[in-house]
Amino acid sequence: MKKTIPKIVLLAFAILVAYASCGGRTVSLSEVVVVPDQQITLDPTDGAWYAHPYHPAKLILQDMVEPRLLEPSTVEVEVTAMTDGKQIAFRLEWVDDSQNDLPGPQAFIDGCAIQLPTEESVSIPAPQMGEEHKAVDIAFWRADWQAIVDGRADEITSIYPNATVDHYPFDAESLKKDPDAKRRMEQRYAPARRLGNNRSGPRKVPVEDLRAEGPGTLSPAKTVSTGKGVRTEKGWSVVISRPVPGFLSKEKSSNIAFAIWQGANRETGARKMRTGWIPLVIRGAENE
């Protein structure tokens, strides 16, 4: 009779090997491990990130609600996390051949997001944007916002370098001495900015905080997150930092989910690659 090694032993061995070494970095296959550190960094290229284990999160199609994404694009995002006790930072790295950070008709933007349960709904909301009375908090980074934060001018010529415009009403000579009147005139032709739509206008941080109770319910939330994204040889490397949620501690784990949008594949909104909930634990302090 042929002897077989129990599957559980094989799995444990595989995890052990993977954890031990993977290209010089440790890998955590089953959970996102947040490592306590003296100081967190927003710089995705900081060597501190490489000292911590990463989780290769497999992405699946958002094919639950219309409009759906039916052809897979980004297959995996590598996640590394650290915390200084007050802030928790996640570094997301994924392969993307093209840099898409210029908006326009039929032009879509590279982006990524992290999703956590809210303080009130730690009992695991639906992974797809939460559900009614079980909200989720989302921090969303976009490549075009990063470009603006990095200094790209808020002008049409940033998008269309050869554009010429004869005249905007708010550039009238009579308004030059009255900045308030000029701003009011400018907002007449930009109602989204006038209404304070987070999506619109110059940005100070490349990350937007949102809350949702199911698909289609995404709403702006108070800005608490920040971040920074850079292009790498392979694609994007982005750090998103936010306050440590009250329900997450060394003693109490939680869950997290990720989403990636690839602009070149015309992914936007619900057309995205996403994960389900992944266990999130704080473990392995520097001085422990």
């Binding site: 908006p103 109602p191 989204a192």
Partner: peptide, 11 residues
């Protein structure tokens, strides 16, 4: 319906 690249919304 037209997309406004400066406000990030459709108009």
């Amino acid at each position: 319906v037209f997309y406004n690249a400066m406000t990030g919304t459709s108009e």
